[in-house]
Design a protein around this nucleic acid. Sequence first.
DNA 1: GCAAGCAATATTGTCAACAACTTTGTACCA
DNA 2: TGGTACAAAGTTGTTGACAATATTGCTTGC
Lengths: 219, 219
Amino acid sequence: METLEGITGRSLTVAELVDVLRSAIVGGDLVPNQRLVEADLASEYGASRGNIRAALAELTVEGLVERVQNRGARVRAVSVEEAVEITEVRAALEALCARKAAERITEGEAAELQELAGRMKDAVERGDRDSYSECNQILHARVIDISAQQTAAATIHRLRGQAVRFQFRLARQPGRPAVSLPQHLAIIDAVCAHNPDAAADAMRVHLESVADVIRSTHT
Amino acid sequence: METLEGITGRSLTVAELVDVLRSAIVGGDLVPNQRLVEADLASEYGASRGNIRAALAELTVEGLVERVQNRGARVRAVSVEEAVEITEVRAALEALCARKAAERITEGEAAELQELAGRMKDAVERGDRDSYSECNQILHARVIDISAQQTAAATIHRLRGQAVRFQFRLARQPGRPAVSLPQHLAIIDAVCAHNPDAAADAMRVHLESVADVIRSTHT
DNA sequence: GCAAGCAATATTGTCAACAACTTTGTACCA
DNA sequence: TGGTACAAAGTTGTTGACAATATTGCTTGC
């Protein structure tokens, strides 16, 4: 892989570095607890150490990186307990979004969600995990989108980045689609039926069940 | 006021600057939309511009400061619409905390909350706004504490910082205590009765009513 | 063989200078 | 009078050098 610096000839800005490093952490190129030595990252990504340093400071506030005084930065390792907490917070926030989405949804958007429901049923019948997983992500994103809640959306997005490793494992669990499909369909039904309370409950139940699965992997 | 630099003889670290600037913004010494010129802040607080710059970057991620490329930083102005959203997110998260608190609360903690309920009733009867406002803050803080939800607590705290200006106005509204006192008592009752669903509902209803008041000030 | 102290190395924290960009003010021309 | 081009000032973005701190490995004495 060629670095961006190698291609463009200029060095990366702080904002670009934040994006690049965030992707590297969320994407798993930088693994939990891995040390992030400023000088190494600087030569790796073709940036000055000062900019690397600034980027690490921002990612620390985002919760992706952990720093201790005079001892440098590491990729933050999220414990199972913490992943459960994060998922519970997501449950509360996405339930809020589902509630607002049920209040605001248009007929066009409802038709779109119904079509998505069809694709999800199909995918489960065919045993197509990748397609189902994709629909899953689209559903959650669409509900947040329709809710038009900027603050909740930003918070959910940040938390997702921290726990993405656990989500990933989850989707591969055998028998998981059979459990989650009816939950997803219940969310779609309630949102499309303009039923805020039912939509919030359905979303909360769904993500609480995700939290339970994560909890159970702790043993 | 003497700067910390003037007292200690050394210049401030980035971490110290973040705290100082955060307090200044939340406390209202730096008002919304006020420009934050790095060089000015540097001489004001007796720090190097580089450290000021790093501190502003962190506060930007926290949502207290707004920056645009090459045009500097300002204190972020939170709109009424945004304050409503923030309060709704707080409603969802504090409802989660109330639920968990109801599950975990000990008898000692329950007695403490009941005593707080008494003080709140007293304060309203006596018309003592300051005391009631203080109890209010203690109640919310205690419920979050008892819930032992680190992730939710950190998120609530960050959001509170952004909307603190609106909260402040609210407490001074005439007739407000008469509305909020029964809501607060309902929260305490449900949490102490180990009733998670009721606790979550009571907290959500309470903060949604706060959101309504903020919304109504827009007109 | 082992622990304590010390030197060497690695790494982070801070700073001041320089470069790049944006805005403001002014002169000139239609 | 209005607008455009250009110069000047103000401010932010970036970098490399230096200082402070932590870690590692070695030596020495027991």
